[in-house]
Nucleic acid binder design. Structure first.
Lengths: 244, 244
DNA sequence: CGCCATATTTACTGTATCGTACAGTCGCAC
DNA sequence: GTGCGACTGTACGATACAGTAAATATGGCG
């Protein structure tokens, strides 16, 4: 694992980060941004944003996944959206808010390019390519969250688990995902024991394998077949944002 | 359907509309917008936006409520968000998309100020008060949709019905709401029979009364007590956007 | 090797909601 | 006033989970 240095140096002369927004920027625009970016890492389970707390930074994700979670009074949580290298964590900053009721959580080890909120807002107001990409990304996130709302109401746990694995698989880029059932239960908003049963179901169908905190997607098309349509709807939206 | 009156007249010399965004604009900015606005009405149940279809207009709601619905393959639908006089229907236009996978539906008779998408985008790029208000509104909607996702997973039908009635009550501004159980079932994503049971439960607690498509909120504090915390969380977000 | 913390499986009961079906009620058109 | 369509209440077994608890594996560590 990469250890974060106490005061990360600017990115001068480093190659352009893997983040899809940053890599889609015109040279000039990226160079204007570059001195304001800092490399930063989060560990699995680390809290990126706390509910109702000032959001001083936004994070262009280069590797790994950051989840947005909603919590209710009894301590239960549900994931409402997930962000990988296709996007930025800190959308409310762009939208002019400085906090949200939700929590940002590193769903894996994460490498990101950090930017101060005020710098991001300043650049956003230039109405350049960055603005366009950020807005389109917000639209994609919006679709994702809306579809999650529908999915949570209308689809079974097996389907939702399959969808969740697909989304994470897409973003992590490896078949082996570091996920305990306990962790999954907080994402899916169900009991641990419920995840156990659902995961077992997928395993017995030969779609996944897992072992003490590591899930391996064995039969990706099979998982796609089990998942609900929600996966494709959201994926299509992300594809169109990055290619349109 | 999408364009009932053949060619509505401009709003010249009419008083400023009731929409909270429009009414919060500085004089100059509103006057710049005024010639581009047209009064338009939708009837209860009318489709404002069809999934995946070009969004030529956005609508500042002056009276009534427009819902965003997600549909799944078997025909089931769920409301993901709701917009009243505090906002604008057509957020994806601002975000640079020209369609969404979701459906916009008039949840009551609606009076709105219509604006062409390209005019809205042009004005949005001025980075004036309108831009700020629109972005903050998007953030509020975002919170609403995220909370709905959590609510759909974690709260009971009684609670969700109570929350839904409160949200609609806030926006319609009348105690009597024109809602059949069939309609409610499509908003809440449950069976019509399920709504019958839940509505009966609320009625027997003396919180609401209803009769063949008209629901009356009798004991508003009582409904708030039954509703889950999701109502307050979202309401607070809207209040802060309109007052901050 | 054996212990222990962690992760997972299983089990049982209770509840929410589904899918479906049917009957009752009301209001309006004729 | 009668009939019909729209709206509502109720019932039934089936299913998906919740809540809780206990048993069982596994891997790391001493």
């Amino acid at each position: 694992m990469l250890n974060p240095s106490p005061r990360p140096p600017p990115m001068t002369n480093q190659p352009r980060p893997a983040n899809r927004i940053l890599s889609a920027l015109p040279h000039e625009e990226f160079e204007r941004l570059r001195p304001k970016l800092r490399d930063i890492n989060f560990h699995l389970g680390e809290i990126v944003y706390r509910p109702e707390q000032q959001m001083d930074y936004a994070y262009f994700v280069n590797r790994g996944v950051i989840s947005w979670l909603a919590a209710v009074e009894n301590g239960n949580t549900v994931e409402t959206g997930v962000i990988g290298p296709e996007g930025i964590a800190g959308v409310p900053v762009i939208l002019g808010a400085n906090s949200t009721p939700n929590q940002g959580l590193a769903q894996s080890d994460v490498q990101a390019s950090r930017i101060a909120s005020k710098d991001l807002v300043t650049e956003f107001r230039q109405n350049g390519k960055l603005s366009q990409l950020l807005l389109r990304f917000v639209q994609s996130m919006f679709t994702q969250v809306a579809q999650t709302a529908a999915c949570n109401r209308l689809h079974t746990l097996d389907q939702r688990l399959a969808r969740w694995l697909l989304m994470t698989h897409d973003r992590i880029g490896e078949s082996k995902l570091p996920l305990t059932q306990e962790f999954l239960s907080r994402m899916l908003g169900v009991r641990r024991a419920g995840v156990s049963v659902a995961a077992n179901s997928l395993r017995q169908q030969g779609l996944i394998d897992y072992h003490r905190g590591d899930i391996v997607v064995v039969d990706r098309p099979g998982v796609e077949g089990l998942s609900c349509e929600c996966y494709q709807i959201v994926k299509q939206e992300y594809d169109s944002y990055l290619n349109g």
